[in-house]
Design a protein around this nucleic acid. Structure first.
Lengths: 107, 107
DNA sequence: ACTGGTACATAGTAAAACTAAGTAGGCGAA
DNA sequence: TTCGCCTACTTAGTTTTACTATGTACCAGT
């Protein structure tokens, strides 16, 4: 199983990938979603750096749309590569989750 | 819930803490244990840097013992602070695991 | 005009893990 | 007896990821 240590650092990226996959969305909304999930110590800026990274890796498509309440929103959607990446992420996650449960159960 | 983002980077440290908690052990053994678990892309050096960190944070006690097959082994055991840290780690882990399942289930 | 909520960007830093290389002890085979 | 192999630990330098902090800017309601 390769890439798992990579993902130990990359859970947030996977979470954001999944959120985007649910429906096209933008940074500010993702941030509040994470906050609602209880990840309230994730800094605002962090989400945008992840988003920029996803864009650079070409896992998402971006489109600016007007907001009624503020500046333009940058909407993100997963492309094919993004969906592959997301599937891989969940596979790695399940692997780790399984190992963690074994470890915990052995206590 | 605080410290969770910290732990996204710190799963390995928690795993090692748990392994040590099972029984007093040393770096080389931990490395092979991780390898057996399927974390075969964890570099040898990484384990030792984690171990050194645990020592610096004063979460473990260390004692050198002779080996019949090679150089001295440095055995690690959790102290009280280490056990507290381990408990905290599992709490954070369960939180994240729960959130991840919710996220995944919503697909 | 001012305040507050919405919305994105980025420079600099810190933490964690990686790569890579080195040191060194003990043992068995050639 | 020396050479290779497994055992065992260390550390310097790099990359990745997230954090802190700050800045920009749009819009609505008062």
């Amino acid at each position: 199983m390769n890439g798992t240590t990579e993902m130990l650092k990359g859970i947030l990226e996977g979470i954001i990938l999944e959120i985007i996959n649910e429906h096209e969305t933008y940074g500010y909304e993702i941030t509040s979603r994470l906050q609602q999930m209880g990840f309230d110590d994730i800094a605002q800026g962090t989400v945008y750096t992840v988003l920029l990274r996803l864009e650079k890796k070409q896992l998402v498509t971006v489109s600016s749309k007007k907001s009624t309440q503020g500046p333009m929103r940058k909407f993100y959607a997963l492309n094919a590569a993004g969906q592959v990446e997301l599937a891989t992420f969940w596979q790695r996650w399940q692997f780790i989750e399984g190992q963690m449960n074994t470890l915990k159960g052995a206590k």
